[in-house]
């Protein structure tokens, strides 16, 4: 077990990395699902089925990344799991109710009597909204160190709005890739309309993070750390500019580059997430508990890791298979 040095060091680090990757994958994948749900009220009745069809085969697996992320927090850092989730008790409950409504509406809107369809469409939107807003709220509270003071709550409410708009932006970008015709043109407009959420969200968190913690401030603005971090804002600005430039030209002849806005936003999410991970490391509960203090016993972590090494590549492979099978423009969802 000492192959890589002290297991009390490398195991928590590995699990923190795995958890980070799971959260990032979740935010990108369920981000576009939730985003599509948020766009429901903006679409015409005959377009709603295509919106749902574009995410139908994927949403369940996408949501599983949340279960994995929270599961890794639970199993690898049990103390942190308790501290974080009890501090976020109410927003977590709101998110869960939102995810419940969103998940079941998929089914009910297609299976319940047709007269109920508008109701389940509304539930689908409401669920997506509750989940997005509460996730944004939790993000804000986490940045603020999980303490419930009025300014912190106000800040968290702002990040709730920004993340929700950001999700609608990546959802719309997904639709550019998965739809065509008038709906695709609309999706281009929706993506443009959501960029401000990404911009302000990234700006708010970037400004607030060093302000909250002197430790992070030094990590950002010390020398030579400043140089290490410099690529993040530069690349982000580049991606935003590219996104704006591309959206002015889409949709293009032969549907070329329809996937680029989604890829660009995915890049933005990844960069922002990388920045946050860099800032908060080695803390899992901001400024209170490090991953090394919160980790489970090495003998338990190693047995999970052993399974993960074999299973995770398989998961990634069959997830990829499903995206290949359902590639191309979204078609009507049929069981036969």
């Amino acid at each position: 077990m000492d192959l890589f040095g002290d297991p009390n060091v490398w195991l928590p680090f590995t699990f923190a990395a795995l958890m980070g990757v799971s959260i990032l994958i979740y935010v990108v994948l369920d981000g576009f699902d939730l985003g599509v749900g948020l766009l429901m009220p903006l679409s015409e009745d005959d377009e709603k089925d295509r919106l749902v069809a574009s995410i139908g085969p994927f949403w369940d697996a996408n949501e599983t990344w949340l279960v994995l992320a929270i599961g890794l927090l639970l199993v690898a850092f049990p103390v942190a799991h308790g501290v974080i989730l009890t501090a976020l008790y109410l927003p977590v409950a709101v998110m869960l109710v939102g995810l419940i409504l969103r998940g079941v509406s998929f089914e009910f809107r297609a299976k319940a009597p047709i007269t109920q369809k508008p109701f389940w469409n509304a539930a689908f939107f409401t669920g997506s909204l509750m989940a997005s807003m509460s996730q944004g709220f939790m993000l804000g509270m986490y940045v603020m160190g999980l303490t419930w003071t009025l300014p912190h709550v106000i800040f968290a409410m702002l990040t709730a709005v920004f993340l929700t708009v950001g999700y609608s932006c990546i959802g719309a970008a997904w639709l550019i890739a998965k739809t065509d015709g008038r709906l695709q043109e609309k999706a281009v407009g929706w993506t443009k309309g959501g960029i401000w959420g990404l911009l302000l969200g990234i700006a708010a968190i970037s400004l607030a993070t060093p302000y909250v913690s002197p430790r992070i401030f030094d990590k950002w603005f010390g020398f030579p750390e400043l140089l290490y971090l410099a690529p993040l804002p530069i690349l982000s600005a580049g991606l935003l500019a590219f996104l704006w430039w591309k959206l002015k030209r889409l949709p293009m002849e032969g549907d070329r580059f329809a996937w680029t806005p989604f890829a660009a936003i995915m890049g933005l999410f990844t960069l922002s997430f990388g920045g946050m991970a860099y800032s908060f490391y080695p803390y899992v509960v901001p400024e209170k508990l490090t991953i090394y203090e919160a980790a489970s016993a090495p003998e338990s972590l190693i047995i999970i890791l052993a399974g993960t090494v074999f299973v995770l590549p398989a998961i990634l492979a069959y997830t990829a298979l499903s995206y290949v099978i359902f590639r191309g423009k979204a078609t009507e969802l049929r069981y036969d």
Binding site: G56, T319, L321, S322, F326
Partner: peptide, 10 residues
Amino acid sequence: AVFLGIMLFG
């Protein structure tokens, strides 16, 4: 979750 998508809609 993944194969449910294929089973239902594939």
